[in-house]
């Protein structure tokens, strides 16, 4: 028995998240982006998003191609727990694809097509000085080399430190603090790569923590973020770890930045909420 993709893994993921309210929440409307994407390099064998309290669920595919699960909870509730559970087959890392030069990427047709992945968002806006200091010196005519160099530079600019930033933190703020998590590494890389004309997008998903994971053993995983840049084809880079994006990575959503891939968002009325904390249990099955 093998997996679909040579060198790929079969992974079982249980992603738990939610909120607890300081009282009762009413009329809660939510959208979850917790379903792994079906891709040429990734097969989804089973997937489900559940909510407690129970609710009718619908789904649609958003503009970015991500499957969104929507649900509404009418009855007053004290907490909301959402679980995404999936089994996915991944593939091993690919060699960089695409042979456009950085000059070719500046072509009007490319710029027009990928404008959304070139324009800064509030989270990825950097002043020119930052670009001149950190991105321009790394720019060669080879986007693969440039992207790898920028990713490496980001690892030298930021120290990985959980809990130091929030979901709203921008690339600039993370840079000022010199610390961050995968989201900040990705935002800063995106900001720098876009500033030198390489279309870049944000990817959210999961990462199995162990390179030599044992089959059947459940690891405490994490929600992860990395990037993809365009060089005629899309190529993935993990600026947080520097490791190749391959069998351990599961893609859920892509977009311009975190705002387009928010795992769980919603509105309600009632008492203030605090996050329940996120746990991701990830098991290698094959």
């Amino acid at each position: 028995m093998s997996t679909f993709f040579s060198g790929g893994w079969r992974l079982h993921i249980v992603h738990d998240t939610g909120f607890v309210y300081d009282g009762l929440a009413h009329g809660s409307y939510n959208e979850a982006r917790l379903t792994p994407a079906s891709l040429p390099t990734q097969a989804v064998l089973s997937t489900e998003v559940r909510a407690v309290p129970g609710a009718e669920r619908w789904s649609y595919t958003d503009y970015w191609g991500t499957k969104v699960t929507t649900f509404q909870i009418d009855s007053p509730h004290e907490s909301l727990r959402v679980t995404g559970e999936s089994t996915v087959e991944t593939s091993s890392a690919r060699t960089p694809q695409g042979n456009l030069s950085c000059t070719a990427l500046l072509d009007e047709a490319v710029v027009d097509r990928f404008y959304e992945y070139l324009a800064p968002t509030p989270r990825t806006l950097l002043p020119e000085e930052v670009r001149d200091a950190y991105a321009i010196p790394l720019l060669s005519d080879d986007p693969h080399a440039s992207a790898a160099a920028v990713s490496e530079r980001v690892r030298s600019l930021l120290t990985y430190a959980p809990g130091t930033t929030e979901v709203q933190t921008s690339a600039q703020e993370a840079l000022d603090r010199g610390v961050g998590v995968c989201q900040d590494f990705s935002h800063l890389s995106i900001a720098l790569l876009r500033s030198i004309g390489i279309p870049t997008r944000y990817v959210s998903g999961y990462l199995h923590p162990h390179e030599e994971a044992k089959v059947g053993e459940t690891a405490r995983g994490e929600s992860h973020a990395w990037i993809e840049y365009y060089a005629g084809s899309w190529n993935a880079l993990d600026p947080t770890s520097g490791a190749a994006v391959g069998a351990r990575h599961v893609v859920v959503a892509r977009g311009r930045d975190y705002a387009d891939v928010t795992p769980l968002s919603g509105i309600y009325h009632g008492a203030p909420a605090s996050g329940l904390g996120v746990t991701v249990a990830i098991t290698r099955l094959r």
Partner: peptide, 9 residues
Amino acid sequence: WVQWESEAE
């Protein structure tokens, strides 16, 4: 009137 609160993970 309903005052909505937003929440995001």
